[in-house]
Design a protein around this nucleic acid. Structure first.
Lengths: 154, 154
DNA sequence: TACTGATAGTCAGCATACTGATCAATATCC
DNA sequence: GGATATTGATCAGTATGCTGACTATCAGTA
């Protein structure tokens, strides 16, 4: 029988497990307390000021129920703000605070370092190839999870 | 600035997210209720009858605190048994029940189908290459997470 | 305008995963 | 042999992620 440890699903979990551990270690070494999800959300809010939570979720492929808690914690840390939208009273408009902007700026080297470390076993060429194959596999499976990547609405 | 969605860490999370969704869907279609973690644990117990929880955790690279809960649920579903060890009274010896054995046998096609689906965007050759690169990256990063893969003790 | 359906956000509940602590039992070392 | 260190398992606490349900609101239409 095929070794369980050699299945694609298992390898996916292991790589993700290492990626998260490396991210948290690098960020903590740099003196910050931010998870991968929180970083992705914060960076995406900064790039799209005033966007609502559902759009944010789509842009980074998270479930909207997860985003609620992530934003809670970003707000609680003083890095983001959640305001009622004037156009649609159901929606919340998200903004990065000055403190959030400062954090994003200072944390970038740690984030980039983490990306290098998680690929440290591969040559530059192999790293590129791994990313290409992951992108291709993900594109084909995008609609298979509850939280597919979506473009921002017009 | 580099697009956040194009970082290795993000791709890792997305691929893992899709892999889990596909696994759960295929297994549910086959009439079973088992998570990827539960499946991996059950299959590994079957292949190593009587092993303790720490060894199990090392064999599939899970944190031992996570394993406690996973075994709780396997026991509660009647698929595994947890007995006090006679050699070491701190340890628990794990066994698969007849029901667990039956489940493993019947669930295999769904698990294999899930592995194919999560790679459906890639050619056979590309799928092999993706797995090779993941294995290589994982091997280099094995010690970077709290739950590295470990061989069984002698 | 009243009805219907869709959408934004939240919540309860469950299952990973992690950190750090604790307890009981075993190993090791002097 | 007895102090010390280590180890197996669990627990409390926190943060993803998911399903399914619910409320409030919006949009389209008869």
């Amino acid at each position: 029988m095929k070794d369980n440890n050699d299945m694609p699903g298992h390898l996916a979990r292991r790589f993700q497990q290492i990626a998260v551990a490396v991210f948290l270690a690098e960020v903590e070494d740099a003196g910050f307390d931010l998870t991968p999800v929180q970083y992705a959300a914060l960076a995406t809010i900064k790039a799209n000021p005033g966007l609502d939570q559902v759009t944010l979720a789509g842009l980074i492929a998270y479930d909207r129920t997860t985003i609620t808690g992530v934003i809670d914690r970003l707000v609680q840390k003083g890095l983001a703000e959640r305001r009622a939208s004037s156009r649609d009273r159901r929606a919340r408009e998200l903004e990065v605070t000055d403190e959030g902007r400062r954090t994003l700026r200072k944390i970038t080297p740690a984030v980039e370092s983490a990306q290098r470390i998680m690929l440290r076993g591969l040559s530059a060429k192999e790293g590129e190839e791994l990313m290409r194959l992951l992108r291709k596999a993900i594109a084909a499976g995008n609609d298979l999870s509850r939280a597919p990547l979506r473009d921002a609405p017009v």
